[in-house]
Design a protein around this nucleic acid. Sequence first.
DNA 1: CGCGCCTCCTGTGTGC
DNA 2: TGCACACAGGAGGCGC
Length: 284
Amino acid sequence: MPELPEVETVRMGLDKWVTGRRVAAVEVHHPRAIRRHLPGDAHFAAVLAGRTITGTRRRGKYLWLPLDSGDAVIAHLGMSGQLLMQPPEAPDEKHLRVRFAFADDGPELRFVDQRTFGGLSVSEGGAELPDEIAHIARDPMDPLFDDDLFVERMRAKHTEVKRALLDQTLISGVGNIYADEALWRVQLHGARPTDALSKPVVRRLLGHVRDILGEAIKAGGTSFDALYVNVNGESGYFDRSLDAYGREGLPCHRCGTAMRREQFMNRSSYSCPRCQPRPRKSLR
DNA sequence: CGCGCCTCCTGTGTGC
DNA sequence: TGCACACAGGAGGCGC
């Protein structure tokens, strides 16, 4: 369940392995792994062959590899995607979707994805910022993220605060886990209407989001099972310090009340019934 | 146009 | 033991 910290961990791990290397050949093992590429898999592989990767970039949960052609390879890990560096002789993973072999015959880059919610695509001229992800907001770790604009935009929305946190066009990089963690810290129930939140509360919420993402990057990303593994093959361990996510029935780390789980947006939300009371009036 | 629901996908865990 | 089903959930697409 990679969110921003996990994707950043992958990006950092990948950077030293792929930057400056020339792609020799790309094999697509599963058509669904290539997204939004109408010319097809063969074309995808053809435009990448012979290109040199010039770096690694990220916005929110999206990752891209700028190429010397000015194009870029976009990657989204979805639920279970992994980007692994493997020696060419290593046996294929069960869910290997795409293989990048390099001209130097060194370690391969492999995209492995069990649930195929993730995918790769080529962005023409997208080395700086792919058009395909231009609609994704800057993430709060981006030096150019505009705090005032975020506060203004959130308060202008007519929705619930957790929905807003998960809206990647408002703020990117936050997923279900870190949204619950930030809401726990600021002591808000996720169903609280955004337009009724004060500026200081939204500002504090943003501060917690930023803190949590930063802490998780430091810890190397969260993981709950073997699905998420960073580029070096190590699982993250931030889950040891979670206060809300996955803690149904366990005592709140602040007041000791048993944490609750609710269905929200077709997924689980965890909160403290005492510190995060449900709003009296839900929307509509 | 804003908002919110549906769907895609497969391995794991649970209950009968 | 085996089957059925819930669950994990990011984000594009679409309906209201």
